[in-house]
């Protein structure tokens, strides 16, 4: 590091003890931050100061810290994952900010995602959608030959594009209606595209979209904010595909 310039930032962070606590914003100063810090490392520094001062550190979700898992659920200045294209919070670096910046940090906000503490929300509603039909129930038996079921490359590629969804919930956090359509659209599509998933496609799309409503998510009104928020770049074409699957399922 040849450049020793550091930044001082003002953080306005949502603090909430549990789901029943009303919660409020607290202001913190992040000192000695370099442009090489990731956003989470910056928060680690702030938390270290808080712990030394005998205060509760800011609680946030994180796991792989290499941009894969999407656990780092934070809305930074109004943008889920900080608004950098196809980037999770852990891969957002402080070089994107300037000395003296004020940064708002909030949890995913949606009725279906109750806040557990500070920036951690309960995303198990997404698991409930998966449990409603995000699987195939065929007997798998032994390991099949690689090319026993032929799948054209473009179809396999598109299914893989849908399967890139890591289920982080940024789409819900970004959606003005708190809808989980991009998530559900991706999960419905990845299976509906492939021969193994086609058998149960009609039943799947109906039960997964029902689960979506039962979990308290809003409805899609085609704002496309989800696509902008998605760190994996899932396209809204998968919502269109799910709508198509849903229509088809009415006649199945």
């Amino acid at each position: 590091m040849s450049d020793h310039k550091t930044m001082t930032l003002t953080l306005i962070v949502w603090r909430q003890k549990n789901a029943n606590d009303p919660g409020k914003f607290e202001t913190y100063t992040a000192k000695n931050i370099t442009e090489h810090h990731s956003f989470l490392e910056m928060l680690d520094c702030v938390n270290e100061d808080l712990i030394y001062a005998g205060k509760d550190p800011i609680v946030f979700d994180h796991d792989c810290r290499e941009g894969i898992c999407g656990m780092c659920s934070q809305v930074i200045n109004g943008a889920p994952h900080g608004g950098q294209d196809r980037t999770t919070v852990c891969q957002l670096h402080m070089r994107k900010f300037k000395d003296g910046d004020t940064i708002y940090i909030e949890p995913w906000r949606a009725r279906a995602f109750p806040i557990i503490r500070d920036l951690i929300v309960d995303r198990s509603a997404l698991d409930k959608i998966i449990q409603a039909g995000g699987y195939t129930s065929c007997h798998t038996g032994g390991v099949a030959d690689g090319n026993a079921i032929l799948i054209p490359k473009p179809v396999a590629d598109e299914a893989m594009d849908a399967a890139e969804c890591v289920g982080c919930g940024a789409c819900v956090a970004g959606c003005p209606n708190g809808a989980a359509m991009l998530f559900t659209g991706a999960k419905v599509s990845q299976l509906a595209l492939l021969p193994q998933g086609k058998a149960e496609a009609a039943e799947r799309v109906k039960s997964m979209t029902n689960a979506m409503i039962e979990c308290g998510f809003g409805n899609c009104t085609n704002h496309y904010e989800c696509m902008a928020a998605c760190p994996k770049g899932i396209n809204v074409k998968f919502i269109a595909r799910m709508n198509r699957e849903f229509l088809k399922a009415q006649f199945a």
Binding site: N77, G78, E106, P176, N177, G218, N219, T221, H223, M227
Partner: peptide, 29 residues
């Protein structure tokens, strides 16, 4: 009916609003 349901999808709004794809038209249907 859908508007009322969708407003309920996020009972607490963000302090900072930043829209990237939504438009004035889409938000005020």
């Amino acid at each position: 009916q859908l508007t009322i349901e969708n407003r309920g999808g996020r009972p607490q709004q963000y302090a900072v609003k930043s829209t990237q794809k939504a438009t004035f038209a889409s938000e005020n249907m």
